[in-house]
Design a protein around this nucleic acid. Sequence first.
DNA 1: AAAAACATACCAACCAAATGGTATGTGTCT
DNA 2: AGACACATACCATTTGGTTGGTATGTTTTT
Lengths: 205, 205
Amino acid sequence: MGTSKAEAAAASKARILEGAQSLILKRGYTAMTVDAICQYAGITKGGFFHHFANKEILGEAVLTQFWEDVESRNAKAPYKNAATPLEYLEGYLDFAIQSYQDPALRQGCMLAIFTMELAESNETLFKIASSHFSSWRTELVEMLEKVKEYTGSQLDPTHWSDFYISTLEGALLLAKANDDPGVITRSLTLYKTILLNCATQVKAK
Amino acid sequence: MGTSKAEAAAASKARILEGAQSLILKRGYTAMTVDAICQYAGITKGGFFHHFANKEILGEAVLTQFWEDVESRNAKAPYKNAATPLEYLEGYLDFAIQSYQDPALRQGCMLAIFTMELAESNETLFKIASSHFSSWRTELVEMLEKVKEYTGSQLDPTHWSDFYISTLEGALLLAKANDDPGVITRSLTLYKTILLNCATQVKAK
DNA sequence: AAAAACATACCAACCAAATGGTATGTGTCT
DNA sequence: AGACACATACCATTTGGTTGGTATGTTTTT
């Protein structure tokens, strides 16, 4: 028994990734230093740069992992088995509200951090974040288009998609500013109520 | 004629502040370097530290100025003369939507940047940003309480206040991520439509 | 199965550049 | 003359990143 060399290496890499994720969520990408990561992972700089060629590549890895986590979480979610588009939508929102009870998720969104900090200084990382936002939006738009067709309501799928992302991202920020995670639940719940109300109203001008 | 020494000094200080504001909006507080500010302001480091004791104090000044600008803009806004609470609310939202046509405002929100980056690393600056968020919220809550009383609707002033701030802050982020400022207008407009609809519906369950 | 060859994962020490900040000088206005 | 508004030159520390080495594992050869 015992850990093989490859296993130990993978564990080190995982610890680096974990430390980086935590540090970025707390202080941002720029303020995240390689030294701090090494300290967290119990490793020296030589070891760090053995696993990641440079800080930017670590950033890519963190961003990728973050988004993969989001997608795998959603893939297993119960709403995927919904019978109707409307139930799918309701399930999606409920799942989001429930997911964001987790303190880990309440820490913030990687896409938001990379976007704000690096939009004008690191094109590579910014574009990755931006593309994830884009695919998130696409997913939402498709979901809402089905709902629209199904209910015959006249909601605008793109507007409501952007509106959702805005709400969630803004709520994560406010939660930090007010040190009150409840904002997330409340804002998402309000969004859900309103959207469902709008989605089930046919031609109610 | 000619600029007096005091005038020149004030101009220098203003340029520092201007450069800092611009750099923070573009790259964040941590990535904003004193050297970069000096270059922007056409000044050397000696000059910079003559005007501001350290980087943190400059941060305070930027944050203060940013919020003062917001407040003075709103103070002169037409909605202040509205006849009824409902018109006041509608005017407030219209003014916001109109204000955020300005590319300068579309660059981002100082409060958001300071909150995200400094929540766990600089208590002083974070608390200032946090307190501004707080007073913003209070203002909104008061406005909505009057609307609620006036219309007899059953909207929750605190929820809708947080929801508004979430929407706006999130929209500013998305605008950057998608490089599409239109998101701001669309999300705010959607919020306005919904809120006004909700505010004018009495006991519509 | 033992030995030799090689690859991996890491460490210790170092480096140049950039960082925020300081000490001291100098011309200008009051 | 003295306060003011800078410039010059400097400093300690931190930054991301490199270099050469070494212990340990893994693979290949005999």
